[in-house]
């Protein structure tokens, strides 16, 4: 018996799951950072720089930024697919979204590893 799937390739499932996994990663990071900011703050420049000079903090923040880019891509794509009916315009907006998110990611790397 051949097990054929005839209702699509289920590409959406991967995006859906990725959005949820990245959401959990970002939520954990947010709680930890929020706790640190409230407990350790207010910061002066030396403490602020020291916080982001920490290797773990850099990696965690980069993980957050990468998670954000992926999460936001799925979300913004949903928004464009729901409201923009015209194919060319929707494609243009999706490309702009990818470029914007890629810029954010590049900028975040630059800020973290100066």
């Amino acid at each position: 018996m051949v097990n054929r799937v005839i209702v699509g390739a289920h590409y959406g499932m991967g995006s859906w799951l990725a959005q949820r996994i990245t959401a959990v990663i970002m939520a954990v990071y947010s709680l930890i950072l929020g706790f640190v900011l409230i407990e350790e703050g207010p910061f002066d420049y030396a403490e602020w720089q020291e916080l982001f000079a920490n290797g773990w903090m850099r990696v965690a923040t980069l993980l957050f930024a990468a998670g954000l880019a992926w999460h936001a891509w799925v979300g913004m794509r949903d928004i464009w697919m729901d409201y923009v009916k015209q194919d060319g315009l929707r494609l243009a907006l999706q490309v702009l979204t990818v470029l914007l998110l890629a810029c954010y990611l590049g900028w975040a790397v630059q800020v973290l590893w100066r």
Binding site: A72, M76, I79, L100, Y104, W107, V111
Partner: peptide, 12 residues
């Protein structure tokens, strides 16, 4: 949508 643009850019 607001967090993606412009707030993320502003925070960065």
């Amino acid at each position: 949508a607001l967090l993606v643009f412009p707030l993320a850019a502003w925070l960065l």
